[in-house]
Amino acid sequence: MTSIIPASAHGAPGGGAAVAPRVRGGAPWSAFLLRRLGGVAVLVAVLVLMTFLIVRLVPGDPARNLVGLTASTEQLQAVRSQLGLEDSLGQQLVNYVGNLVSGGLGDSFVTSQPVSRLLGERLPVTAELAGLALAIVIVVGFPAGMGMAAWQHKRRVRWGDSAFTTVTSLGGAMPEYVTGTVLIYLFALKFDLLPAQGGAAPSEIILPALSVAFAPMAIFARLVRNETSAVLGKEYITTAVSKRLPSWRLYLTHVLPNVVTSTLTLGGLLLVALLGGTVITENVFNVPGIGTAVVNAILQSDYPVIQGIILVLGLLAIAITFAVDIVLGLVDPRTVSAVRSQ
């Protein structure tokens, strides 16, 4: 073999096969967004179909269930047309979707008020409660888990690890209604520090938010601890350690982004599950949110209200999932470019 390659040949582009440079903001991001938005559209469509089917799937005649056996045929007929049960199923769906698009969710059977007004009053309360709970979960759970992992990484203390595991297991097993009951007893009845009645006011929201956040906080802290330990064992951390960076820099620039990635991937479901906890907790503290409203509506067979609230809860869940995806895309470049290879 005699040929000598001149050094200048070195930078020449390879056979079209070398990895092409990609920079954020280019095609991968729009492809990524498009794909995620497509997913959201499907989810919303299925959700709408699901809420639509609630009324149609009720065994027997929903109108009869509503008006009772003693009602006259005219009353029954009126309710039927109000429910739109006269038309064919396809036509009913079209009407339902049409109403939704124009913002109409129907009127409550019980109060005859528009469902949209009910939601307008109650959704902000629920959103505030869920948002505060989410904030507590992250603000407490993340540093606790990460700090624990960092401490254990630096000096292994056996009791520290088992204590953390025990505490988070116990905490994670506390249902929000038990936590709520305990909190009411302690803070409202025994020491009379905060009201037992929930609401939108700052003093009224603390106990409900703590109830919702308590168990997820423990589970989240444990998750973050595990993920941080895993990241600290990775080879790129050894690389970073070889640079002898100050601790804060090491954790902030090398550990944190990767922990956020893996935590979000696994913890997305946990955030969505907060919604369920909110619904239950509202009933413990009698918070005037959509959680109490939906339970009343179910007990009173108030279908338009049920449909409206389930729709809203579903949309919230979809929004959270979407937000998690976007954050993942921002933090972890591989998520975005993975779309291309799929």
Binding site: L47, L275, V279, I280, I310, L313, T321
Partner: peptide, 10 residues
């Protein structure tokens, strides 16, 4: 993607 509570309530 839907939390179990939604399915359970429905």
């Amino acid at each position: 993607a839907y939390p179990p509570i939604i399915v359970a309530l429905s």
